[in-house]
């Protein structure tokens, strides 16, 4: 699998710094699960974070700090555990790897075959995903093969991560693992590639602004 569209430096830095809100973080973390290249870039950023921590102007700890710390670790000292993840239950053997990687799979409560899709009309479906950050809207979208997502601009940023099938946005192809980052200036029209429905994770920070007044009219009803 070759991923062509990666997380931008700004977004990855926010992830590395821990400043990304839950909704965006879910999309970036799921891309990272599929993309060794971006995980390598992430390690570099975390190394930079570690180096900055070395160089930060230290803040003296309280005089009794270490004594207190010593008491606390001795009190509830955990048994030494081996370095590997051997303690984890082994993943159940399955014929094929799941379509939805973690952390997304846990967020939607299972892999694609178990999902309960809600119709958006015209053969498109979605599943809203609950997050607690209060600033993002997250959902799984299923666009029927060969069909467009209605043309839309954005009130803000939009992240679209392809999980299955693919779509074209203009000349550009987005397939499994590819992440499309769009901002308020972008008018685009993704079209699912014929032959297979396209399942993607979409995160926005504001309701989409559809161009057609008719779509705008039903937008509140559909919750998109």
């Amino acid at each position: 699998m070759t991923i062509r569209h990666h997380v931008s430096d700004e977004l990855l830095l926010a992830y590395a710094a821990g400043t990304l809100e839950e909704g965006w973080r879910l999309a970036v973390a799921t891309h990272l699960a599929l993309c060794p290249d971006c995980r390598k870039r992430l390690s570099l950023m975390e190394d930079a974070g570690g180096q900055l921590l070395e160089e930060i102007v230290p803040e003296p700890a309280m005089a009794t700090s270490f004594e207190r710390l010593r008491q606390r670790v001795l009190e509830k000292s955990a048994p030494v555990r081996p370095a590997s993840a051997a303690a984890r239950p082994a993943a159940p053997a399955r014929a094929a790897a799941p379509v939805l990687p973690e952390p997304l799979r846990s967020y939607v409560g299972g892999d694609v075959e178990t999902l309960k899709w809600k119709s958006l009309g015209r053969g498109a479906y979605h599943i809203p995903i609950r997050t607690d950050d209060g600033t993002t809207m997250v959902r799984l979208l299923r666009i029927p093969a060969g069909k467009p997502v209605p043309e839309h601009g954005h009130g803000g940023r939009e992240l679209t991560l392809v999980l299955s099938g693919s779509f074209h946005d203009g000349e550009t192809l987005f397939a499994r693992g590819d992440l499309e980052e769009a901002d308020a200036s972008v008018q685009h029209q993704p079209v699912a590639t014929p032959g297979e429905d396209c399942i993607c994770l979409a995160v926005t920070d504001a309701p989409l602004k559809f161009r057609s007044w008719l779509v705008r009219l039903v937008q509140p009803v559909l919750g998109i």
Binding site: A33, L34, P36, A85, V99, P101, E102, R105
Partner: peptide, 9 residues
């Protein structure tokens, strides 16, 4: 992400 997930690349 979870390196022990079977879908992890």
């Amino acid at each position: 992400f979870d390196p022990n997930d079977p879908a992890f690349v």
